[in-house]
């Protein structure tokens, strides 16, 4: 790994998680306020996360297994906010509502 590769790899990894987190945040706020603009912003953040994952795979000197890990993480990020949201909604339903 060259000194420059060290820096841009680390920055890409950090931004990747930040984009994933922003997706989760905007998606949740959008669902909370039933605001499509927030949900769309969340999806845009996720698209940025995909681009960052792609950049990590194409331009960084990480070993192949780590790149696969990044791709899988990117896929899992897509699922976490909606799955968590659905689960929380189910959890918050009272037993009467569930019946």
């Amino acid at each position: 790994m060259t000194p420059y590769a060290l820096i841009y790899t680390a920055v890409l990894l950090g931004l990747f998680v930040l984009a994933g987190g922003s997706y989760g945040g905007f998606y949740s706020v959008g669902k909370l306020w039933t605001n499509a603009a927030f949900i769309r912003t969340g999806i845009a953040c996720y698209l940025v996360a995909i681009l960052l994952a792609l950049a990590i795979c194409l331009f960084t000197p990480l070993a192949a297994l780590w790149k696969i890990f990044i791709v899988l993480s990117c896929l899992i990020y897509a699922a976490i906010p909606p799955v968590t949201w659905r689960y929380l909604a189910k959890l918050h339903r009272t037993p009467e509502e569930s019946k």
Binding site: V17, G20, W66, S73, P81
Partner: peptide, 25 residues
């Protein structure tokens, strides 16, 4: 160590969603 600690953001993302949900609920 690298593998397992790289997994750590995943539950933390769930916590962010949970915090927003609870505040909204």
């Amino acid at each position: 160590g690298g593998f397992f600690s790289a997994l750590e953001p995943l539950p933390l993302l769930g916590m962010v969603v949970h915090a927003i949900y609870d505040a909204g609920a």
